[in-house]
């Protein structure tokens, strides 16, 4: 058995801090590429102006070290820990939360987390929502996703009947985007989680949002076809950038799938705005 690779919690805290600050200030290269592509396809005058504002915004944010959006999100973290890694120096989950705390304080990011009933702000943007997987190897992969409220609010989890099939899934996705209209800051990235259980479909949909833009699903041709078809139907809605009307309502559709119960067809549609923040680091 190989000796465990040791990783100090302070390293994890530092990386989480840096990831959230960078994700909030710098538009991902994949997202910027998709916006440029949308500009080349768009014909509506208002939508072209809106897409240009998005590109101008990312330039200003980068040059002036300012957040791209005032909603710097609830902090979502995906962490894959190699089973040959030994975490030392403190409590792993606390190290992640401390990284979030430092990012939102030192990066001047908005604290947008509150008690669900009293609505009293927790004042440091914790707790983050953390998903951990144990994987082979001796590396740790951390993906930071500051998730905005406007797009999260228009997202939907639904238990379809198996007879609804692919058509039922497509209709739910398109209907969700139509109902979201301008509210979720289109052009959107649409995450679709199919199968599993109720909560696992939601996790798949969220993970789908962390996938880099610019490629259809490369593990399952059925999902790649679904993504292609959904992108076409969604862009046929005509909602356009900022909902001002146009040809590009979604930059991408990402679908992920897992086997489910013979009685069920869980589907979650998780919307993300055009800022589509996600950033990862491998330790």
């Amino acid at each position: 058995m190989p000796p465990a690779r040791e990783l100090d919690v302070s390293e994890i805290t530092r990386v989480v801090r840096d990831l959230f600050i960078a994700a909030s200030r710098e538009l991902g290269g994949d997202v910027a590429g998709a916006i440029e592509e949308a500009l080349s396809l768009e014909e509506s005058e208002r939508a072209v102006a809106a897409l240009r504002e998005i590109m101008e915004n990312q330039r200003i944010a980068r040059e002036e070290s300012m957040p791209l959006c005032q909603d710097t999100g609830l902090a979502v973290l995906f962490v894959e820990i190699g089973q040959d890694v030994r975490i030392r120096g403190g409590v792993f989950h606390e190290a992640l939360q401390e990284g979030v705390r430092l990012a939102y304080r030192e990066g001047y990011l908005r604290k947008s987390v509150c008690d669900p009933l009293s609505r009293v702000n927790t004042a440091d943007n914790t707790p983050a929502v953390i998903h951990v997987d144990i994987v082979p190897g001796d590396r740790v992969r951390i993906t930071a996703m500051p998730k905005g409220g406007g797009s999260e609010n228009m997202s939907v989890a639904r238990m379809l009947v198996p007879s609804a099939g692919l058509e039922g899934i497509e209709d739910l996705v398109v209907d969700t985007v139509r109902k979201a209209g301008p509210n979720s800051c289109p052009p959107l990235v649409v995450g679709v989680g199919i199968g599993g259980t109720l909560e696992y479909s939601a996790l798949l949909a969220k993970k789908a949002l962390a996938r880099p833009l610019g490629r259809f699903n490369d593990r399952d041709d059925r999902l790649a076809d679904l993504e292609r078809k959904l992108l076409e139907r969604i862009n046929g809605l005509g909602i356009g950038a900022q909902g001002y009307g146009g040809r590009v309502t979604a930059l991408a559709v990402h679908a992920e799938m897992a086997p489910c119960h013979i009685a069920s067809l869980p589907v979650t549609v998780n919307l993300n705005c055009h800022v589509a923040r996600h950033r990862e680091c491998i330790l």
Binding site: E53, I54, Q58, E64, P67, L68, C69, Q70
Partner: peptide, 13 residues
């Protein structure tokens, strides 16, 4: 009025 969403560094100017 609608203000553009998600371009908050631009609007801050």
């Amino acid at each position: 009025f609608g203000a553009p969403g998600g371009v908050a560094a631009l609007l801050a100017r």
